[in-house]
């Protein structure tokens, strides 16, 4: 975290250069490993964006897969529509705007969830965001243009290493420098004590909505990358379990700890690849891990220094 404070832009630049370099030599990589590395990049974006909502701002959201699905569907539908009239080269130039469009619609969805959630706290908010994710899934299942229950397929594979990690770097940069800015201290104030924060003249409502909108935007971006990586999406992919996986990353990394959350995203994406032989136990292990962590180490696995504020409130 300290590193981000000292030279955030330089780090962002290095990360982007590294991502582009990695993208240039991506063809040398085994496609399977490339796929896993892209999965990691997407997981980092998801975890870091949820960390802004759950970790830094303390608004427990269980609907992250819902925002992700909005971004995935919107960008995939745009790409599929554009493909009718243009070639692969032109499409590649429009990839970033397409992703951003998906992110913006997801951000709009974040606004829609954020505004009613102002009146809710803790467990109610968790349930409403969960319900929202389910509603989005039911809607996509019923919309003809989105392919109904069978979803969209034949999406061009445009997500590369470079785009994934440039966007992951941008997500980390935006969230980390936002939270460390003067304005962003408000997120942590809302997390620590909402009543005290509003007594200090902060507007908790605005911070919560901002967190939801920015978090949803990046979740939408991650969804777009996901759609153009897997080439087919169905509403079932973005169910509660998907949201929960991201929540596990945030909890494991220590809520509000950017570096820990990134590490957790990497580990939890790699774990199923190594644990193929015990795949049937994966969710049981996740569940036990969560219960154990909450009882023994609520501050997360990768959190060693003492911190004054409580990690979960």
């Amino acid at each position: 975290m300290q590193l981000f404070l000292k030279a955030p832009r330089a780090l962002l630049l290095i990360a982007i250069v590294a991502a582009v370099a990695a993208g240039l030599c991506a063809d040398l990589m085994n496609p399977y490993y490339r796929g896993v590395v892209i999965d990691i990049g997407i997981a980092i974006i998801l975890a870091v964006s949820l960390n802004l909502i759950n970790g830094h701002t303390g608004q427990f959201s269980l609907g992250h897969a819902g925002f992700m699905s909005v971004g995935a569907y919107v960008s995939a539908m745009i790409t599929l529509a554009l493909r009718q009239s243009m070639g692969a080269d032109q499409l590649a130039w429009l990839f970033l705007p397409t992703l951003v469009a998906g992110g913006l619609v997801a951000a709009l969805a974040g606004l829609l969830v954020g505004v009613p959630s102002l009146r809710l706290r803790g467990d109610y908010l968790a349930i409403v965001t969960l319900g929202f994710g389910e509603i989005i899934r039911v809607i996509f299942q019923n919309v003809e243009a989105a392919g109904g229950a069978s979803g969209l397929s034949g999406i061009p594979r445009m997500t590369g290493l470079a785009w994934t990690f440039i966007l992951a770097a941008v997500a980390v940069y935006v969230v980390a420098s936002l939270v460390n800015s003067t304005y962003g201290r408000g997120f942590i104030a809302v997390h620590d004590d909402e009543v005290a924060a509003s007594a200090m003249g902060l507007n908790p409502t605005r911070y919560k909505v901002t967190a939801f909108v920015i978090g949803a935007f990046f979740a939408g971006i991650a969804g777009g990358l996901f759609a153009h990586h897997k080439t087919s999406i169905t509403p079932q992919v973005f169910d509660f379990m998907k949201s929960f996986e991201v929540v596990v990353m945030v909890i494991l990394g220590g809520m509000g700890r950017t570096a820990g959350v990134i590490l957790a995203a990497v580990l939890l994406t790699l774990a199923p690849e190594f644990l193929r032989s015990v795949a049937e136990y994966r969710m049981i292990i996740y569940a036990l891990l969560i219960i154990f962590l909450m009882i023994a180490r609520p501050q997360g696995l990768f959190h060693f220094e003492r911190r004054k504020r409580s990690s979960a409130a």
Binding site: L62, G122, D123, L289, I290, I291, M294, P298, A312, A313
Partner: peptide, 10 residues
């Protein structure tokens, strides 16, 4: 409360 909620999901 949130700790308990997360445990309950677990």
């Amino acid at each position: 409360k949130l700790t308990v909620l997360i445990t309950a999901i677990g």
